[in-house]
Amino acid sequence: MVDLTVSLSGWEIANPVIPASGTFGYGKEFSEYYDINCLGTFSFKGTTLEPRLGNPQPRIAETPCGMLNSVGLENPGARHVVEHELKEMGRWFRGRVIANISGFSVDDYVRAAELFDREDKVGLLEINISCPNVHGGGLAFGGNPKTAAEVTREVKAVAKKPVYMKLSPNTGDIPGIARACRDAGADGLSLINTIPGMRFDLRTRKPILANETGGLSGPAVFPVALRMVYEAARATELPIIGMGGVSSARDVVEMMLAGATAVEIGAANLVDPFACRKILSDLPIVLQELGVTRIRDLTRGGIS
């Protein structure tokens, strides 16, 4: 038997295969396809303090080996999620979940974090700092160490649950931002978010997405994600939830070797609703082949 358990800052989960925020809703749709209780946990749709309608259509474009999305953080707002989605979730998922929080000011993050920190159903807070800071000229919080640290410090000041900072790949300095988050008290890191990109419609000669640009995800970003997880793991000792293009059990192993403690799966769920269950059932076979008996031993195994 292979031991698949991993621990995220003291929170033991049954396995490291975690559906990524924005690709799994609140779990309900997937529970119509399989019993999602086989998952250790999942990260729910990025939630902001106030409800958001998101961007106009079209929001999706295909790319070679991946996709662009410009959903624009459509969500019903943190209070609604606490009162409805989290309350109902017990009907299809017994475990605790990752609260993915987005914001457009430091205060937004703090107030949404306070709401979710009180909830038993929440295991940890994943703070998405790819969002633009409306008080900082629209530059992303995660784009520089100073603003990344500021969000981390303020959220940590109100949160009892572990706080994982979800880094944007849209920076030339992953190690600097990782260290800034650590120094500001982060319990862990989560990366990567999507990479900005675009596509054009040849007939209309206009961008396909109404928002013009969108975030790239899927297998196309996998090597970039591995490199960034690796850089973050070398820069800090913090546990990392690694993601970006992971689509198979072998990809999970590779992501863990690059430094991840657990792995999130995003776009793969959108192509195949059974993706996570399939990865989970392949994982023991792949580990056996590799002579691995405890999956947690793989973490950082590729770092010399």
Partner: peptide, 15 residues
Amino acid sequence: TRMACGIGACLGCTI
């Protein structure tokens, strides 16, 4: 609309 998941999870098709 352009779709990704088709099952209501990604909000790629919301109007």
